[in-house]
Design a binder for these strands. Structure first.
Length: 275
DNA sequence: GTCCAGGAACTCA
DNA sequence: TGAGTTCATGGA
């Protein structure tokens, strides 16, 4: 499938820190493991991307995953024509970013792991947990072997020592407890998709190991509440240095998560983040 | 050896 | 409520 869209840049998405299983495999090419599937993406030119899937999978899975049923150009234009100079630069720089509609459980565990870690380290931990608790699969087209993200029952039954050996640090207990909450129904991720963002964050924060930042990431990338606004160390840098800690998300009501993503991606570029 | 990373829990005031 | 400390781990 070849997709034409002026706001769809696979490199920007892969480096935007919202998903951890999209990796470069060559010039303008990336692999992605999501929903038990392995696909390749190739940026043919600025507005053209080739996805290694058929029309059926595109319509049922990837169009939703990449939020291609929404026009990001409207948001970018609004920011570029607005009065906020930092956001003007940020939106232009990251105009190919999209908010991914990831599997909620994968987002939940991934962002629990993410706390106090840098992105390469998060990726390593996630690959180890997939190899240990996910299913081994082989992509029929390429013959590439990959591992799916573990299901909640696998991680709910995991032993703390086994997780600790995967170098997850103190997060091992958080992962087990969160998975058990999903299994026993305390944490109903599907229900959190259809309730409000505020309600979702409140529920997520009732789980040990999930604070405001992780809850907002899960809400944004796993539950697709695009009004979520995660603030990590990079975002704190932006808010402090460019806004004197007076940034008001109400000015971007309903799509603050997209604005946040442009800010995050741009500030890391400004500081020359190599990870 | 020191500092930092898409933080959160805990303690103490 | 708010500041300070601790928690594993790897990389710069």
């Amino acid at each position: 499938m070849i997709i034409e869209n002026r706001n769809f840049d696979i490199k920007q998405i892969a480096e935007s820190g919202q998903c951890f299983r999209m990796n470069p495999i060559g010039q303008n090419k990336y692999s992605l493991i999501a929903f038990d599937r392995y696909i390749k993406l190739k940026q043919l030119d600025e507005n053209l991307i080739e996805i290694s899937c058929d029309e059926n999978d595109y319509n049922n899975i990837w169009e939703r995953y990449f939020h291609l049923d929404f026009d990001y150009g409207i948001i970018v234009d609004r920011l570029v024509n607005g009065s906020d100079n930092f956001l003007k630069e940020a939106a232009l720089y990251g105009k190919g970013i999209r908010i991914l509609r990831q599997d909620p459980f994968e987002a939940l565990i991934s962002f629990i792991i993410s706390q106090n870690k840098n992105i390469p380290s998060i990726k390593n931990c996630i690959e180890r947990i997939c190899e240990a608790y996910g299913n081994r699969k082989e992509d029929t087209a390429s013959g590439i072997v990959y591992y799916t993200f573990p299901t909640p029952d696998k991680l709910a039954e995991a032993k703390k020592e086994d997780l600790r050996s995967l170098k997850l640090g103190y997060r091992d207990e958080y992962i087990i407890e969160a998975s058990r909450a999903v299994i026993n129904g305390t944490l109903n991720l599907e229900a959190l998709k259809v309730c409000s963002h505020d309600e979702a964050v409140k529920t997520l924060k009732s789980i040990r190991g999930i604070g405001d930042k992780v809850a907002n990431c899960v809400s944004l990338y796993g539950l697709h509440h695009i009004e979520a606004f995660p603030v990590d160390v990079w975002m704190k840098r932006v808010l402090s240095e460019y806004y004197n800690n007076k940034f008001d998300t109400e000015n971007y009501r309903g799509y603050a998560g997209i604005v946040q993503q442009y800010m995050f991606y741009y500030i890391r570029h400004v500081y020359g983040a190599s990870n």
